[in-house]
Structure formats: structure tokens, C-alpha cells
């Protein structure tokens, strides 16, 4: 959500119960403006908050010219002093899969776990134990990257792909209609598409290449991992992810207001299949 409408946006995504205190809100509004200048971002969005057992991480997302690919994340403990997080790589994400438990709130904390790896081939194969050390900062990067790929949501038509392949906000976007807002297929994952490429030509026939370039939420597996509700007397659509408890997406139909925040423990709900 944008820094200049942060009050409205936080108010709209507060249905899940966690909000920011007035002090934090005010601090955010000021520091996000400074961030935009210092890091030369096109836009700065408040991304969320990861609850640690000692302190919480506040996270903002800075956007460059391409809204989908050029992005950077920064974290802070007091909403004033921000630290840039390294870009996520495949190694960082895979190395932190095995970490369990809550975040502590100390970026230099080191998680240690033992991984067994099979070395050699055929009969010579041997199991080798490797101790892996991951700092909490890297874990934070990995979790943010995972949430971004699995649970970042935008309404259909809000972003547009230009002939050069860059993704920008669609200035012509005027919001989903009430009928569209009730359907999951009018919401997209805001991440590099995976399933779209596997679709058959017949399924792709009705797609408009400049807007339908993302994966739809409808095709998510396991199905039923999104809870779609209308709040505030049916005037706001709220989508909650059941896999990442704490991710809330809001959109006011017929306006271009939309956004998502993640406020939670930073752990994926892997028990989901048992809980329906």
C-alpha cells in the first residue's frame, strides 16, 4: 500500500485484528517518504509485519521501473531506521525450508540444523551429514520471497504488460465489478507465472496477453486455500490466505484501491489439508 494512503489502507486491512499503533503509523508515513528519495524508488509500499518472540519486523517494499521484477525489501524494528535486505536467490530459499519455529526478532541469530546428503552413486552411495547455518536475516529474505510468490494478490486488470515485457500499473483500471469480485478467477498471483505456460491453447484462447499474463488464484493447488469474504457491509472484498495465515488482501470494487499486507508469524500453515 502506498505511503500517502497508508491510513485508509491499514484501516481496510484491519479485519484480521492486527493493526499498527498510531505512533507506528505516523512514523511509517514519514520514513517511507525519505526511503523513496534515498533509494530512488518509484513507489514505496508497506508490505507487512513479521511477529517475532522478542521484537517484530516491519517490512516495506520498494518498487523500481518494473513493478513485478525490480523490487527491494527493507526491514525495521521501529518504523524509522530501515535496513536493506539482500535479494533472494534459490539457495537462500532452499536453505531455510528446514527451519522450524518462530522468528526471534534478532537478524543476526543463527539457526543451525543438520542435513543429510547422499554422496556418490550406486553402491558407493554414502550418507553425509552437513551442518547448515542460516542467519535470521536470510530466513526473513526467504520467507518474504515465498510469500511473494505464493500469496501476493492483485485484481485482474490492475497491471498491464507493455510490448517490452515491462509490467506497470494500468491507469485505465477502474476496479472489478461486484459480480467479478465474487469470483476467484478475477484475482491474480503477482509473481512470475508458472501455471500459465502449461495451459492448453484452448484455455488460452480467451486470454488478453496484455493483462492475463499472471497465474489466476482459481488454479491454486490445493484448492480452497483462499477465503473470500465481503466486509464492511459488503463494500470491501477481503481475501485471506489459509496457507499463509495473516495475509490479507483487500479491494474496494469499482475503485482502483487494492493492496495486501502480511501480518503473521512468518510460517506456512502446512497442516492445511487436515483443517478443512
Amino acid at each position: 500500500m502506498d505511503s500517502n494512503i497508508i491510513h485508509l489502507s491499514l484501516d481496510l486491512s484491519s479485519f484480521s485484528g492486527i493493526i499498527l499503533s498510531p505512533e507506528q503509523k505516523a512514523a511509517l508515513q514519514k520514513s517511507m517518504v525519505i526511503l523513496k528519495r534515498d533509494y530512488k524508488f518509484n513507489r514505496v509500499l508497506f508490505w507487512g509485519r513479521i511477529l517475532g518472540t522478542k521484537t517484530d519486523y516491519f517490512i516495506v517494499k520498494g518498487l523500481g521501473s518494473d513493478e513485478l521484477r525490480s523490487k527491494a525489501f527493507l526491514y525495521s524494528f521501529n518504523c524509522l531506521d530501515w535496513f536493506l535486505l539482500p535479494q533472494s536467490t534459490r539457495e537462500i530459499v532452499t536453505s531455510s525450508y528446514a527451519i522450524k519455529g518462530r522468528f526471534i526478532g534478532d537478524p543476526s541469530y543463527v539457526y543451525i540444523y543438520v542435513e543429510t546428503e547422499i554422496v556418490g552413486e550406486g553402491e558407493d552411495a554414502q550418507e553425509e551429514e552437513i551442518t547448515v547455518q542460516v542467519t535470521e536475516e536470510f530466513r526473513l529474505v526467504a520467507v518474504i520471497a515465498q510469500i511473494e510468490t505464493e500469496a501476493a494478490v492483485v485484481p485482474r486488470g490492475a497491471y498491464i504488460k507493455n510490448p517490452y515485457g515491462q509490467v506497470n500499473t494500468n491507469r485505465r483500471f477502474e476496479g472489478l465489478s461486484m459480480t467479478e469480485a465474487k469470483k476467484l478467477n478475477s484475482y491474480f498471483h503477482f509473481a512470475e507465472p508458472v501455471r500459465l505456460k502449461k495451459k492448453t491453447l484452448l484455455e488460452k484462447a480467451d486470454l488478453e496477453p496484455s493483462i492475463d499474463f499472471l497465474d489466476s488464484l482459481e488454479d491454486d493447488l490445493p484448492s480452497g486455500s483462499w477465503s473470500l469474504q465481503f466486509e464492511k457491509g459488503n463494500s470491501v472484498v477481503v481475501l485471506r490466505s489459509l496457507l499463509w495465515l495473516g495475509l490479507t488482501f483487500y479491494h474496494i470494487p469499482l475503485t482502483s484501491h487494492h493492496g495486501y499486507t502480511y501480518i503473521g508469524t512468518g510460517q506456512k500453515n502446512i497442516d492445511f489439508p487436515f483443517m478443512l
Partner: peptide, 12 residues
């Protein structure tokens, strides 16, 4: 609770 960063929106 709002001071503490917990709660629902004021309307609600």
C-alpha cells in the same frame, strides 16, 4: 488496544 497495535478498525 490500538495504542498497542491490536484491534479492529474503528467503524467495526
Amino acid at each position: 488496544f490500538e495504542q498497542a497495535g491490536v484491534g479492529l478498525s474503528r467503524d467495526e
